[in-house]
Amino acid sequence: MSIKLEQVNYTYNPHRPGEKVALRDINLVFQDHCFTALIGRTGSGKSTLIQQLNGLLLPTHGKIIADDYVIDMTLVYKKDGKVDERAMKKKHKVKLQNIKSLRKKVGIVFQFPEYQIFEESVIKDVSYGPKNFGKSEEEAIKQAKEALTLVGIDESYYERSPFELSGGEKRRVAIAGILAMEPDILVLDEPTVGLDAAGEEKLMGLITHLYEQGTSIILATHNMDVVLKYCKRAIVLDHGKIVHDSTPLDLFQNSEYLKSSSLEPPKVFRFALDLIQGGLDLDLSKVKDTKTLANEIIRVKGGNA
C-alpha cells in the first residue's frame, strides 16, 4: 500500500501558550514497497510525521490518503476567504471510523519499544496485537511464533516473563509484537538506538529481510551508516519542513547542503570521497559499507576479490 500526505500541517497546543508548529505543508508520497529514511535533528518533526501515518495524531489541517483510508482535515474557508475555525473544530471532533483497519496496515515501532511490554509471558505479549485486530487465539499464537522466529527469539523463551529478559531481547520481543500484526508498512522510530554493533547489524538484517519479502519500510534515524547501507530514499526534515528528498547517494554527495544542515555523511562515504580525490576512480553508487568499499578498491586496482 502507499501513503500520500497532502499539505499536512500539525501544531501542538494550538492557540495556547506553548504552541508549537511541528509540521508545515508536508507533501509526500510513500510508494508501495519503499525503503525510506526520515532524517532530521531532534525536534525536526520526524516523530510527529510518523504518528500521522496511522492516525495517532491527526493533522491540524491537511489530508492523508492511505489506499482507501482517507483522513480529510483539509481547510474549510468561509465566504470571505478566512479559515472557518468552527468547521475545522467540528471536523476534528468527528470520530474516525474503523481506525483499526489503518493501524493494522501501518505498524509503528516506537523509540525504546520495550516500554510497551506488559503481559506475563513473551508469547502472550506478542500475540496481543493480532488478537486486538480480531484474530482468533490460535491464529494469534501462530503469528506470534512466526514473528518471534523472525526476530530470533526461540521457543525456550515463549513462556518466560518478558520483564526478566535482557534489554536487547526485550526490544526484539517488542518489535515482534508489531511484526505479529503483519503490517503492510513497518515504521520504525530510531530502532538502533542503544544497541551494540552486532545488535544493530542483526536488526537491520531483519528489516532488510522484511523489505525483501514485500513490506514497506519507513525508518526515522540519526544513523547515517544505516541510511547509506540500507535505504533507497532519504528525506530530510528541518523545522517541520521537507528540505531534501533524494537517494542517500545524492544526499551525501551534496556536501554543501549537508554542511549547512549539520548532517555528516558516514565515515565510509567520506573515506571513499577522499580516495576519489586522491585519484582512485571509484563508483560511489556501489559503496555501501566497509566491505563494498574494499571490493570497489580491489576492482579499481585490478585485483581479484
Partner: peptide, 19 residues
C-alpha cells in the same frame, strides 16, 4: 508524557482507548 507514549504504542497494537 509516559502515559501518552505507552497509549500511543498500545494504540498501534490495536487498542482503542478513545472509542
Amino acid at each position: 508524557e509516559e502515559t501518552d507514549r505507552i497509549m500511543k504504542a498500545q494504540a498501534s497494537r490495536g487498542v482503542d482507548y478513545k472509542q
